[in-house]
Design a binder for these strands. Structure first.
Lengths: 208, 208
DNA sequence: AAAACAATCGACCATCTTGGTCTATATTAT
DNA sequence: ATAATATAGACCAAGATGGTCGATTGTTTT
C-alpha cells in the first residue's frame, strides 16, 4: 500500500511529506485537513488515500518517518567526546538546520505529536514512541559533560542551562526569520560562522 | 452592545475572555470556533453573540483588550534606569508571569494575531496596531542599556542577545511546565528567587 | 498499433461543523 | 403580578470533512 508512495520520485514524495507534516504541525489531529494537504501537495485527493489508505495511517506513517529522520540525521551523528557543551550544541544546531532545510516543520510536528490527545491516535503514538527508547536529548548531553572544563565559579547545573538557552536562542531566531520562502538557499555554513562568534563569547565567559 | 459584556461579574467575564483568547491563540481566525469558546466558557451560544454581535467583533475586542493589558501590566511599568540588562529583564519576567497567571494564552494569542493573514481581519489588526505606536520591546531595551557596565571584552551586541536568550529561556521553561492546571497557585515570588540565581551567574560572567 | 496495465484526478457522498438567529424559559426588579 | 432583562440551546443554511470511485490519461507489453 505505502509501497506506492515510497516508489514515487523524490520531488513529489517530499512535496507530499512536507505538505502533510506542515498541516499536522500546527493543528491537532482532528482539525488537520486532508483537503489542505492534497491541495498544498498539488496532487489529486484520490492519490493520498491510494498511498496511505486513510488519515490515521498517513499520520502514523509521518510520525515514524520524522522520528527516523531525526535519529538518523541528527542524534546519531553527535560526537559527545569533547565534554564541552557549546561544541556539542554546535553539532546539534548544524544538523538541525540541515534537517530544517529539507523539512521546515519537522520540529513543530513532533512537538504537536507529543501534545496530541485525540483518542483516535494517542495510544498509537505512545506505542511508536516506546518501540525504540526515546532518546532524551538533554539527558544524554548532560551525562557527557566535563564540568571541570568550566571556570570553578561556574560549575553548576544552572550554568549549563543558561548556555543551552542562550545558544538555542540563536538557532530559534534563525529559524523564525526564515519562515516561509527562500528555505532551499538557507546558508548553513554562514550561519555556523556566526554561531562560532556566539560560542566564543560563551566560552570566554564560562570556560577556562 | 459590548457594554453587556463589560457589566458581567469578573469571574464570568474572565472565563469568557480566557476561553476566547485560548481558542484564537492556537488557530487561525478562520479555524477558531465560536462553539468551542462558548462550551469552554460555559455559557450559551446566544450570549456570545449578544455580547459581541459576531465573531469578528469578538476577535478585535480581544486584540484591543490584550494589547491594553500588556501595556498597562507590563511595558509601562518597566524602569530602564539601571541600564543593566538582567535587571530590566527581571522586571519584564515578573510582570509577564503575573499576566500569564491571569491570561495564560495571552502571549501566544498576540503572536498568532501578528501572524494572521485572514483577509477578514488582517487589515483591522494592522489598524489597531498602528493606533498607538507599537512598542517594540527589544528596541526600547537596547536603547537604554549602559554597555560600559559590561566587562570590556563583552561590550558587543551579541553579548546582549545571548543574555536575553538565556534569561528568556528560564521563563519559557517555567511557562511550559505550568501548561494547564494549577496556574492560580503559580509561585511568582519563588520563581523570581530562582531567577536571581540565574541572574547572578550572568552578572558574574559578563558584568564588572 | 492495439491491448493491457498502472497512475492520477476531482466530482461526489453522507455526515458533521460552521457562524449566526430566535424562541422559550429563568431571573430579577418593580 | 407584571414588566424587563439575562440566559440557554435547538435550529438554520452553507460549507467543510474523510473517504470512494468512475473516468481519463500515461506507460508498457505485445
Amino acid at each position: 500500500m505505502k509501497d506506492f508512495f515510497e516508489k514515487l520520485d523524490e520531488q513529489k514524495r517530499e512535496r507530499i511529506l512536507n505538505a502533510a507534516i506542515k498541516e499536522f504541525a500546527y493543528k491537532k489531529y482532528e482539525d488537520a485537513s486532508t483537503n489542505n494537504i492534497v491541495s498544498a501537495a498539488q496532487i489529486g485527493k484520490g492519490m493520498l488515500f491510494h498511498y496511505f489508505g486513510n488519515k490515521k495511517n498517513l499520520y502514523l506513517y509521518l510520525y515514524r518517518y520524522v522520528r527516523e529522520v531525526m535519529d538518523k540525521e541528527i542524534y546519531s551523528r553527535i560526537d559527545y567526546e569533547s565534554g564541552v557543551l557549546p561544541i556539542i550544541l554546535k553539532q546539534l544546531a548544524k544538523y538541525n538546520l540541515e534537517t530544517f532545510k529539507r523539512h521546515p516543520s519537522i520540529t513543530d510536528f513532533i512537538a504537536q505529536c507529543n501534545r496530541e490527545t485525540s483518542p483516535e491516535v494517542h495510544d498509537d503514538i505512545q506505542n511508536i514512541r516506546n518501540e525504540r527508547g526515546v532518546k532524551i536529548k538533554e539527558d544524554i548531553i548532560y551525562k557527557n559533560l566535563d564540568m571541570k572544563l568550566l571556570k570553578p565559579e561556574f560549575r553548576e547545573k544552572q550554568t549549563i542551562k543558561l548556555i543551552h538557552w542562550a545558544l538555542d536562542g540563536y538557532i530559534s531566531e534563525i529559524k523564525g526569520s526564515y519562515n516561509g520562502e527562500n528555505l532551499d538557499q538557507l546558508p548553513v555554513e554562514e550561519i555556523m560562522t556566526d554561531y562560532d562568534s556566539y560560542m566564543d563569547i560563551i566560552c570566554k565567559a564560562f570556560y577556562l
